[in-house]
């Protein structure tokens, strides 16, 4: 008998994960702006209020309080999911996230559980400006005590959200907004979880390793196809899925095979995750780094603010053509 599956888009897959975990564990509760009134600011919680009642709650527009109440609830018996609409709004709650959620347990040496998921929409597209599209993940990587999840597909999003909810440490789940409603994927009806710190080879290849996550995965796959068809170059696309913990072993394994490493993201290049990942690779495998066929390269957005213009935005953010161009340089 064929395995049961369901077709879900990205945002429904996340909703399905939250629903399953709320059914499984009565201590799971979620709050944020418009989760009930609008069934999620982006429609990510359909039917949940009807099913779970007061375990799904609307808050006032108070990001600092939403974030920090999640932490306090997580310390006192609630498996909390707090929804912050966008990464730009997450920045408003930055003290709470960086100093308290990330740091306070360590500051006082408290080693008990703090099961908190900070669910937040990220990803550039549409020309809405910084507050709705900013990619601030590298800033979060700098914080102690935060796990950072950035899934690219509905399948990954579901499995990683379930892991995030069951995790006893704080997790920042950055959902990629531009793909929320873009295409459905076949998802097993049966329960599955995806562990943190396990990158996924989205396409195998032998000439160059392209390390990507979230919105850049799709672009890297498109580039890989072009490179293969037009240039005979075999690119391996490695989707990190979580930035913290980082699957450095998967990067090293892939680069050992290809001898070339490109790291690409939609976030700004300066101070971005790519620089950190490149150094982590070098530190973890200096022998492999020494035998590289070409120096490590990175691709990121220009170091300017996100414009309120989709046209300008497209000029700032790397696309598949940029990936093709830089890989061709690396192969030259």
């Amino acid at each position: 008998m064929a395995e049961q599956t369901q077709m879900l888009n990205y945002v429904s897959a996340i909703g399905a994960a939250i629903r399953e975990e709320m059914q499984r564990d009565k201590t799971v509760a979620m709050w944020g702006e418009d989760l009930v009134s609008m069934r999620g600011a982006y429609g990510e919680n359909p039917g949940m209020y009807e099913e779970f009642g007061d375990r799904i709650m609307d808050t006032p527009i108070v990001e600092q309080a939403i974030l920090a109440t999640g932490m306090g609830a997580a310390l006192t018996g609630t498996r909390a999911i707090v929804s912050i609409m966008t990464t730009g709004f997450l920045a408003i709650a930055f003290d709470g996230l960086f100093m308290e959620v990330g740091g306070l347990r360590q500051e006082f040496g408290y080693t008990g559980p703090m099961p908190l998921v900070v669910f937040c929409r990220t990803g550039v597209g549409g020309g809405f400006g910084a507050h709705h599209c900013a990619s601030i993940e590298s800033t979060l990587m700098h914080s102690p005590g935060l796990k950072i999840v950035m899934p690219s597909t509905p399948y990954d999003a579901k499995g990683l959200m379930k892991t995030a909810i069951r995790d006893d440490d704080p997790v920042v789940f950055l959902a990629h907004g531009p793909v929320y409603f873009r295409g459905k994927q076949e998802i097993p009806a049966e329960e599955y979880l995806i562990p943190f710190g396990k990158a996924d080879v989205k396409k195998e290849g032998t000439d160059v390793t392209i390390v990507v996550y979230a919105g850049m995965v799709r672009k890297a796959l498109a580039a890989a196809e072009t490179l293969s068809k037009e240039n005979g170059i075999s690119a391996e696309v490695l989707d990190l899925r979580t930035l913290v913990p980082l699957d450095i072993d998967a990067i090293v394994t892939s680069v050992k095979k290809t001898g070339r490493l490109l790291i690409a993201h939609e976030a700004m290049k300066r101070g971005g995750a790519a620089g950190e990942i490149a150094m982590r690779f070098t530190e973890a495998a200096p022998d492999v780094a020494k035998t590289l066929k070409t120096p490590v390269r990175r691709l990121g957005a220009k170091n300017v603010a996100l414009p309120r213009s989709a046209e300008l935005e497209r000029m700032l953010i790397p696309n598949d053509k940029d990936v093709v161009a830089i890989v061709k340089e690396m192969m030259a």
Binding site: A29, W31, Q64, A65, L67, A68, T69, G70, M71, G72, A73, A74, L75, T76, G77, T78, A80, D95, G96, M99, E100, L104, R105, E107, F108, G109, Y110, G112
Partner: peptide, 27 residues
């Protein structure tokens, strides 16, 4: 810092812990 005693510590920026404690009221 001991939730079993109802204590969730304090931060170096006073006032920031008020919403943390409010979270205990949600629990």
């Amino acid at each position: 810092f001991d939730p079993d005693f109802g204590l969730l510590a304090h931060t170096g920026a006073g006032g920031e812990e008020i919403p943390i404690y409010l979270g205990s009221a949600i629990s």
